[in-house]
């Protein structure tokens, strides 16, 4: 027959899993969340005195799997922090962790990675132009095709075709990079908010 100690062990295991999934949050905040959920489980599972196997099962069932609960915390936390700071680094870091917890998170992370990588490529082109002007820029190969070159070494051959933007690649590259960062963050936040709404269920 399960003992009170075994219920305690199961509760601790649930909280340990929650703690593991919340590791990307600041340490103090993570501890605060875990203790709040511990307090909640004690209140709901031991409402009539001792914590039984059935009451603990019911309490944990209502909370949902630790990974799903952690994912909701991370998403809410990400929304609050990213909306406040609009920091791409913070958004990418949090979405990476969310990606390990859900399929939606994976696609948001993938989208963010592509958006920010393109922005980085444009920024590099913009900043490298003064260093190696004949090998960095946008080249027109033929009537329909263009090629963006980032030649950092002076020993590289000059790209074929005709250079299109010249020195304009620097301001335009920076503007395009900035727009890409803003768009990626904005679309990422909106997507998360939509997924977050879809996760919430209400009983009647």
């Amino acid at each position: 027959m399960p003992t009170i100690t075994s219920q305690q062990t199961r509760m601790d295991a649930y909280l340990a899993e929650l703690r593991t999934h919340l590791r990307s949050l600041p340490h103090e905040q993570m501890l605060d969340i875990v203790e709040e959920i511990r307090s909640h489980i004690r209140d709901t599972a031991a409402a009539d005195g001792a914590m039984t196997e059935a009451s603990l099962n019911a309490a944990l069932h209502r909370l949902g799997p630790a990974s799903a609960l952690a994912a909701t915390y991370l998403t809410e936390n990400l929304l609050a922090r990213a909306e406040r700071t609009r920091s791409p680094w913070l958004f990418l870091k949090s979405s990476l962790h969310w990606a390990s917890l859900s399929v939606q998170g994976f696609f948001v992370f993938l989208g963010a990675l592509i958006g920010y990588s393109l922005a980085t490529a444009f920024s590099f082109c913009a900043l490298a132009k003064p260093l190696n002007p004949h090998r960095v820029g946008l080249w027109r190969i033929d009537a329909d095709s263009f090629s963006l070159h980032l030649g950092l070494s002076r020993s590289l051959p000059t790209p074929p075709g005709h250079e299109v933007l010249g020195w304009w690649i620097t301001p335009l590259g920076l503007v395009v990079a900035m727009i890409l960062v803003l768009l990626t963050t904005e679309i990422g936040l909106r997507t998360i908010r939509r997924f977050q709404r879809a996760r919430m269920h209400f009983a009647h």
Partner: peptide, 30 residues
């Protein structure tokens, strides 16, 4: 409004992060 725990606690955490709520730990009779 019957809302699952898994929704309310993370939402409380966000409202706190946004500065709309503050929290404190209080020893209870429980």
């Amino acid at each position: 409004l019957i809302v699952p725990e898994g929704t309310v606690y993370p939402l409380l955490s966000r409202l706190k992060a946004e500065g709309l709520l503050s929290s404190e730990w209080v020893e209870a009779d429980a």
